[in-house]
Amino acid sequence: MALSDADVQKQINQMMAFIEQEANEKAEEIDARAEEEFAIEKGRLVNQHRLKIIEFYDRKEKQVELQKKIGASNLLNKSRIEVLKAQEQHIKNVLLETQQQLSVITQDRAAYSALLTKLISQGLCQFMERKVILRCREADYKLVEDALPSAVHQYQSLAKKDVTVIVDTENWLPAEICGGIELTAQNSRIKITNTLEARLEMLAHQMLPEIRRLLFGRNPNRKFDN
């Protein structure tokens, strides 16, 4: 039996409705899948950028901490240098004040004469030469002449050798030094300076660690004295 036009149209409408429903369901499925994939990709990108941001600020924080440490270290080193400079200047001032007081020693002629005897004798023992030229201040000439025999006797008793000491009266030591003597031998090729300033400088160098300790206390960071 042939279908009427109305039945045909009805079937066509049903088929169209089915196709449309299938299409809508498929579209919804695609939309849902796309939305899910978008959400996943969005989460991945957000997490990726979040990690990058965290990493970026971690680096910044480490850089800031490093700069703070460097800054603190620089300030500490600068302050240490300033303290060391101040200490060295104070030591220089103390030595300068001590040097200025050396002239007091020469005012006690008996004590100064005894000191000259020791300075001459020590110099001769260092030389161990047969002929020695001695220089002194012109103001000390008489004291040196008086001290010389005793100094030579001390040297000969220790070294068991003879020595001739000639006082150079043409080339005096500078009048501005505090005192002491200078010895030369072998046509001035060798020289020993036993002036009061030279002995003070030598003594200060030897006692520098002790001077530092007395003035500023023991440094807990110093492993070795120098």
Rank of each mutant, 00 (worst) to 15 (best):
Q48M: 10
K69I: 10
A34R: 06
Y112Q: 08
Y141G: 12
M15S: 11
G71R: 02
L84A: 13
V83C: 10
L115K: 11
K60V: 12
A27V: 00
A23W: 02
Y141P: 04
L84I: 06
M128V: 13
K10Q: 11
S103D: 13
K92P: 01
I105S: 13
F56A: 11
K69Q: 07
M15Q: 13
Q107T: 15
S79L: 03
C136P: 08
D5V: 02
E28S: 00
D7I: 01
A111Q: 10
K85R: 10
K60A: 07
S121M: 08
Q99M: 01
S4R: 07
V8W: 15
D7Q: 15
S103N: 10
K85M: 14
S103G: 10
A2R: 13
D58R: 14
Q89H: 03
V83P: 06
S121Q: 14
K62Y: 10
I70V: 03
L66H: 11
Q9C: 02
E138A: 10
K92C: 04
R130M: 06
A114M: 07
N74D: 05
L66R: 07
Q99W: 01
N47L: 04
V8I: 15
N93C: 04
S73W: 00
I81P: 00
E28R: 04
L75H: 01
L124F: 04
G71C: 00
E36P: 03
Q101P: 01
E25Q: 03
K10V: 08
E20V: 06
E65M: 00
D5R: 09
E35F: 13
E29V: 08
S113I: 10
V132F: 00
M128S: 15
I133N: 12
V132T: 06
L75T: 03
V144D: 09
R135W: 09
Q101M: 10
Y112D: 13
E61K: 04
Q99G: 02
N24M: 09
Y57Q: 14
K85D: 15
K42P: 07
V83I: 14
V83Q: 02
E20T: 09
R135F: 07
A72M: 09
Q89I: 01
I133E: 07
K131Q: 14
Q11C: 05
N24P: 00
A39E: 10
D108M: 01
L134K: 02
Q100R: 05
F56H: 14
Q67G: 11
A72V: 00
E20W: 01
K118V: 12
L45V: 05
L84M: 13
Q21H: 04
V144N: 08
I70H: 05
D108F: 04
V46I: 15
Q87M: 04
H49E: 09
Q87G: 03
I120T: 07
Q126T: 13
V94C: 11
V94L: 13
F127S: 14
V132L: 03
G43M: 07
G123A: 05
S79E: 05
V46H: 04
I70K: 00
E129H: 15
K10M: 11
D7W: 02
K92I: 00
G43Y: 05
A86M: 14
V64T: 11
A114G: 08
T98I: 02
L66M: 10
A114C: 05
T106R: 11
D58V: 02
A6C: 10
Q63H: 08
K142T: 14
N74W: 01
S4L: 05
N13W: 09
